[in-house]
């Protein structure tokens, strides 16, 4: 369960996200849509404190993930991020072998026994449907994989740490239609298992995947959530005229 309350994200003087409030129940998929530059990525990055890495970035408001306050004083960002998987628009496997990509973080987090490392590697690769494609070349560079395979490897790299939350920032937008469909059905299969927040520009995809929908818009010098709710209801019956036009494909 993700509870976000009046979250604002600032870059220096600039407000990227203003007062965003959102609740995502456990095991559901929440799609975040909206035009470019309205703060979707910033919102996502604030949830696992990736904003800490950006000089001059600052947040306000509260974020609770499974009851735990993301910005609490006793929280270690590294520990927090370990329990929150993040998938980026551009697949970014490390320039290492497939095996090392998956095991680097596991080892860092204390898994040392070879059998456990191997079995978790296999399980993660099976979960993303990559096992049969790569089982004979686990020691080859991950960067030799195709774009779609790389993105699935990144997803495997995230879920091998057994997070409860997945944050996905346009995970399909750099992929060809077939690879994109593949990743999408993968996300579909994750429903119930992870709490997923997915940013997408593909409204049809949002409609197919999402239980819950949040529409971001740039309004009054800042990005904000202008409407949210049950995905089916919101698609069928949006209240906000801007949202209605956007969802009908006329704006944004």
């Amino acid at each position: 369960m993700i509870q976000v309350e009046s979250l604002s994200v600032f870059y220096g003087e600039r407000v990227a996200v203003q007062n965003a409030t959102l609740i995502a129940p456990s095991g559901t998929i929440t799609a975040i849509v909206g035009p470019s530059g309205c703060g979707k990525s910033s919102f996502l990055a604030a949830l696992n404190r990736m904003t800490d890495l950006i000089p001059g970035a600052r947040t306000e408001g509260t974020v609770r993930i499974h009851g735990q306050n993301t910005y609490g004083d006793d929280i270690s960002p590294a520990l927090l991020r370990r329990s929150i998987g993040m998938i980026f628009q551009k697949a970014n496997p490390f320039p290492l072998s497939i095996r090392q990509n998956l095991q680097l973080a596991l080892r860092e987090h204390g898994v040392r026994q070879r059998p456990e490392l191997e079995s978790r590697t296999e399980a993660a690769l099976r979960d993303v449907g990559l096992w049969d494609e790569v089982k004979d070349r686990l020691d080859q560079p991950a960067l030799r994989l195709s774009g779609g395979q790389q993105q699935r490897l990144c997803i495997a790299r995230a879920i091998i740490l057994e997070p409860r939350v997945l944050l996905m920032d346009e995970p399909c937008s750099a992929l060809d239609p077939i690879a994109s469909a593949h990743v999408e059905s993968l996300i579909q299969s994750f429903k119930g298992r992870y709490t997923i927040l997915i940013v997408t520009h593909n409204l049809a995809q949002a409609r197919r995947l999402a239980d819950h929908l949040a529409v971001f818009w740039y309004e009054g010098e800042a990005g904000r959530i202008i409407e949210q709710g049950n995905a089916t209801e919101l698609f069928d019956n949006p209240q906000h005229p801007t949202v209605a036009a956007y969802l009908a494909g006329q704006r944004g």
């Binding site: 696992n48 990736m50 890495l53 960002p77 590294a78 520990l79 927090l80 991020r81 370990r82 929150i84 998987g85 993040m86 980026f88 970014n92 496997p93 490390f94 680097l104 973080a105 860092e108 987090h109 990144c154 790299r157 995230a158 740490l161």
Partner: peptide
Amino acid sequence: HAAASLGLS
């Protein structure tokens, strides 16, 4: 970014 999101030091 990938490394940070995995909680690597």
